[in-house]
Every structure is written in structure tokens, then in C-alpha cells.
Nucleic acid binder design. Sequence first.
DNA 1: CTGATATCATTTGCATACGAATGAATTTGA
DNA 2: TCAAATTCATTCGTATGCAAATGATATCAG
Lengths: 158, 158
Amino acid sequence: MGRLEMSGEDNLLRLVEAEDGDENNYHLQDQVGFILRKAHQRHVALFASHIGDLTPPQFAALAKLHDIGETSQNQLGTLIAMDAATVKGVIDRLKARGLVEVSKHEVDKRRLLVNLTPQGREAIERLIPLARAITEETLAPLTAKEAATFLRLLAKLA
Amino acid sequence: MGRLEMSGEDNLLRLVEAEDGDENNYHLQDQVGFILRKAHQRHVALFASHIGDLTPPQFAALAKLHDIGETSQNQLGTLIAMDAATVKGVIDRLKARGLVEVSKHEVDKRRLLVNLTPQGREAIERLIPLARAITEETLAPLTAKEAATFLRLLAKLA
DNA sequence: CTGATATCATTTGCATACGAATGAATTTGA
DNA sequence: TCAAATTCATTCGTATGCAAATGATATCAG
């Protein structure tokens, strides 16, 4: 648009279209939600390329259990930002692979306690160094100072 | 730990545990992948609260079609960062709701052309102002300058 | 021209992710 | 104390998201 020789009418058209292009047009690729989704996709792909047999949510569950020890499924979900339905599936799959074990809470019979198995502990301790490398690689496009700024601002949004 | 009166042995233990806590401990909540996942979740929730009957990927498809006009399903997927299997599902659901229509490419019989229907055009034009508000609300925890910095760095990662 | 490659779309299988509904158990409050 | 509200876990339905396999079509190279 605006690349042709213009009559008076074309001039008006160009003005309208320029206004449309600069102010009214919606650029998906500039929206924070769209870029956030792509950045998240990139991180998941990097994670998969380094840790193929565990997903980021599964890793998060193991890492948190390693950090705090036995907890209820519900509490674990809160700590790793998963709703009850999602954490159920994650724990079921980790249980099926022998990385966690569940038991009933002695006094509060509603609660399902989750804990690492020895294999789970071995796995998470082996994988944590790889996870550190994934974090580094995810942030690799930024300088150290930029990465620090980015993490500070990202945390404000999360 | 380190809160009890200590013998020499306890002192050594405390040192070891302090080292563990400060250097060897892995803090999930500080990892970029985990925070990225939470920020993305927050945005999706904000989106849902404003635009309840369309998901961010569905909105992205409509917005891109509105921007560029008819394209192949595959090309659309590339533009909105979805693989072929995912974009298929998104388009199927938009088609079922009468927001897009598909047709066969005249010369290249492999391609499936996708375009907005009049209802789809009406919907996206009505929703774009809401999407702008969602972007603003997502970035609300940041100052204008911080938001600009954040978007610049986020784009580098995506 | 034709066999090897590449592209486009589809399908299947698996893994999040969340809303809503349900049931069991616990806690609260009048 | 006991009915109401809350919490914990499960289940169902729907929607991404991706890997891998498949089939149809198109392009390329010799």
C-alpha cells in the first residue's frame, strides 16, 4: 500500500490505510501472551532434548519432593503450581514408574501422602545438574545482566 | 539445622549443611522454566476471564487469518507456532463453530486453505480490543519501562 | 522421465491443563 | 453439638502440544 502513484483519492486511501496499519492493526507477534507461549515452548523443547524420559512437570514434582520430603498430593500441587486434576495424573505416572510411592495419612483420611522412592531420589539427584544446564541454555540468548533483569521481571508476572 | 547448641562435630555438620543449602540445593521456584510456566498459566487465566468462549490458540488463529487472509493450514500453523497436529485440532473446532471455512487448493491438491467466515471476521474484530486489554493486564505488575524491557528480553528467548 | 525426496495433512498415542461435578472426611460456627 | 462450609482427592470432558507413522501429492536430480 502507498507504493503506487497517487491521485487525491489514493492519497486519502493511503492515509486511512497507514492509520490502520500503525494504530488499529493488531500484531499477534508483539503480544506478551503469544511470545510467552513461544518462550515456554522453547524451554520445553530444550528440556526434552536433555531429559528425554521426564517432562518438566514430572521433574518439578520430583524436585519438590526431594526438597521438602513427604507431602500430601494436594500440597505438592500447590507448591508446583498444578491443580488437583493435573497433579493426580503426574503422580500416577511417576508412581507407575516406581519413582514415587503414596500412602494414606494416619489422622486425616482425606490426604494422600506422596514421597520419593530410593529410585526416585537417585533419579532426581542425577538429573538436577542437567536441569541447571537447561536453565543456562534457556537463558543463553541473554547476557548475565539481562538474564538477571529478565528473571526479576518474569517473577513479577508469575 | 544449626539451631542447636553445637559440639565440634555439630559445627562440621552445620558447615556441610549450610554449603548444601546455599550451593547444592536446587530451588525449583528460581528456575526460568518453572516461572515461565507459571507466567504463561497466569496469562491463560486472564485470557479466559475476559474471553471465555475462545482459547488463546483459537484467538491466535483468527487474528492471524484476519491479518493475512486465506492461507494453508500448514502455513497458518507456522505463523502461530503450532505443529501440524495441533493446528488441525484448532481449525477443526473453529470450523465446527462456523468461524473459519476450509477449501482445497486449486493447483496443489495437498493443501487445505483456511479463511475467516463473515462470523469469524465479526468475532475477531470484536475481540481484538479485549485482547489489547488482556495484554495490558498481563503486564500490569510492571511499569511501562519495565514492560518494554521485559518484552525485548522475552522476545530474545522465544 | 522417473525414482528419490520433500511437503502437506491426518491419525494415533501420550502428557499436561483446567472447569465442573462428586464423594469422603474434616473443620467451623451458631 | 451438629448442620454448614471447607478441604482433599477423584473423575469426566474438553483443549492444547508434540512425536511418530501414514498416505497423498509435488518437486528434484540424474
